[in-house]
Computed example of a mutant assay.
Amino acid sequence: MRRRQLILGLGGASGALAFTLGLGWLQSRGRAQPPAALLPLPIGEMGFALTNHRGEPVRPADWIGRPTMAFFGFTWCPDVCPTTLSDISGWLDELGPDADRLNTVFITVDPERDTQQVLADYLANFDPRITGLTGPLAEVERAVAGFRARFEKVPRDGDYTMDHTAGVFLFRADGRFASIIDYHEDRRFALPKIRRVLT
């Protein structure tokens, strides 16, 4: 009985953490939909203005007409971000020429450190089709709000780190939200999700 209560307690705590981080909105095998208030806005209703790692201005309206795959992170991230960017690079490689039809973006939640040049240097380690976005903190906050994501600056050992939503967001070519790929989701489930937005 005590073992069952412990398992249930741990399960509940894990579930709450996953929801807070935005990882549990859409499960790869489940069909439950989150409340509408938690769904990302359609891209056409977002209003942020950022700059990509090549120095070009980017607005969400620029993405309409092509499916979009977007991920929030930061270059000082020790594990989640490089792992996810490596996964994204692998997905793009496996998609072959179809991957060229995607807007694939990495939006920093740490614009204080992640300048255009820092993003350019960092993304040189991953698939060149991944575009990094940075800009004023207020614009990053607008982007995060539109995606219904979250981030938080957390002091640590005289410096800081960033807690942030770790899912990969997928949108259809018309800008409607399609699904989210959870952190460490198996490739067998991630790739079909991407292929569905490409159809």
Score class of each variant (00 low, 15 high):
residue 182 D to W: 04
residue 74 F to D: 10
residue 48 F to R: 00
residue 77 C to F: 02
residue 104 T to S: 15
residue 74 F to G: 02
residue 70 A to Q: 05
residue 45 E to F: 12
residue 181 I to Y: 02
residue 3 R to N: 04
residue 153 K to P: 14
residue 70 A to N: 05
residue 163 D to A: 12
residue 49 A to Q: 10
residue 124 A to Q: 13
residue 51 T to Q: 14
residue 28 S to Y: 10
residue 3 R to F: 07
residue 113 R to W: 14
residue 41 L to N: 13
residue 139 E to I: 00
residue 98 D to F: 07
residue 61 A to D: 05
residue 49 A to T: 10
residue 61 A to F: 00
residue 19 F to D: 03
residue 121 D to L: 07
residue 30 G to Y: 04
residue 14 S to F: 10
residue 44 G to I: 13
residue 51 T to K: 15
residue 10 L to K: 03
residue 98 D to G: 08
residue 140 V to I: 09
residue 153 K to L: 14
residue 35 P to F: 11
residue 3 R to I: 00
residue 18 A to E: 12
residue 122 Y to P: 04
residue 153 K to E: 15
residue 146 G to S: 10
residue 183 Y to M: 07
residue 114 D to R: 01
residue 116 Q to H: 08
residue 109 V to E: 02
residue 42 P to I: 09
residue 154 V to P: 01
residue 61 A to Q: 04
residue 169 F to W: 06
residue 60 P to M: 05
residue 77 C to P: 12
residue 31 R to M: 11
residue 22 G to Q: 05
residue 198 L to F: 04
residue 13 A to T: 06
residue 32 A to R: 10
residue 43 I to E: 06
residue 193 K to N: 03
residue 42 P to W: 12
residue 35 P to Y: 10
residue 172 R to F: 12
residue 41 L to F: 14
residue 63 W to R: 08
residue 78 P to W: 01
residue 190 A to Q: 10
residue 7 I to R: 15
residue 40 P to V: 00
residue 75 T to L: 03
residue 126 F to M: 13
residue 152 E to F: 02
residue 171 F to K: 03
residue 25 W to V: 11
residue 24 G to E: 08
residue 113 R to I: 07
residue 125 N to F: 14
residue 56 E to N: 15
residue 113 R to G: 13
residue 73 G to T: 00
residue 125 N to Y: 13
residue 13 A to I: 09
residue 96 G to V: 14
residue 164 H to V: 06
residue 148 R to D: 15
residue 62 D to Y: 12
residue 29 R to L: 11
residue 191 L to H: 00
residue 15 G to S: 09
residue 136 P to N: 12
residue 46 M to C: 05
residue 99 A to Y: 07
residue 13 A to W: 03
